[in-house]
Amino acid sequence: MEKWASNKAWFLVLPVFVIVAFSAILPLMTVVNYSVQDIFGPGQSVFVGTEFFKQVLADSRLHEALLRQFLFSALVLLIEIPLGVLIALAMPRKGVWVSACLVTLALPLLIPWNVIGTIWIIFTRPDIGLLGSTINHLGLAFDHTASPMDAWVTVMLMEVWHWTPLVVLLAYAGLRSIPEAYYQAAKIDGASSWAIFRYIQLPKMRGVLTIAVLLRFMDSFLIYAEPFVLTGGGPGNATTFLSIYLVKIALGQFDLGPAAAFSIIYFLIILLFSFIFYQALQNVGKGGRS
């Protein structure tokens, strides 16, 4: 299936280009401009060159936040992708239960992000929360406002609860694209369920898993509202992820220059990793198909 070559197709892409460029390009340029000058007020600024970049790169709290962020995103991908695929495999292929499952799964995705944080505060508080008080009744001390470990567990639980359904929905869509005939052929060959998964289901899910991995990586790397509402970045700095730290600089201390320099670095990190993931997933698929 060779695609038709025609540069006229640009006209079809133009509306998308215009509407995205409108919101994307000028703000991005502005942030770059902010990053090289110290702004005191409207029209009053001093050009400082790369001073802010230097300051940000030497910031040890930023290094900690970055490490924390990588750990968090890695855990998110390692837990959510396999779990999501597993649940998608368990979903019924047809019948009335399909709609029921889809509705249930989609519900957490439709809750505004700050409300997600609120739900989990209510759910995990040791005094009024179901989870918090159950664990305490079992004789284990649990308080996400006091113990960094508990805070991490709570944030991870919330994240997995919130976003695994997205992976399930995408993986399920990929699974549904496999014609019934494939399964029948595999049955005749006496293929094990692992073989079916490895050689039929997994290759067919390549496209949707690319979307899932990229979306989950980008969004978990940028996570802000949910942990901010739940833990406020604490206790101490235990759950201060990059975005939370960034907002502390930008709004808390109103250091626009360093915050802008920081967000450019932040953007470059996500850009690099997304590019690598994108290329890797595209090429894995090519190898698998031949």
Binding site: P27, T30, Y224, A250, Y266, S274
Partner: peptide
């Protein structure tokens, strides 16, 4: 197009408001 999901919204808020 995809890279537009990657910008940390917090800092872009001010230029957005200005724009």
């Amino acid at each position: 197009l995809l890279t537009n999901r990657m910008a940390p919204a917090a800092v872009f808020a001010l230029p957005f408001f200005q724009l």
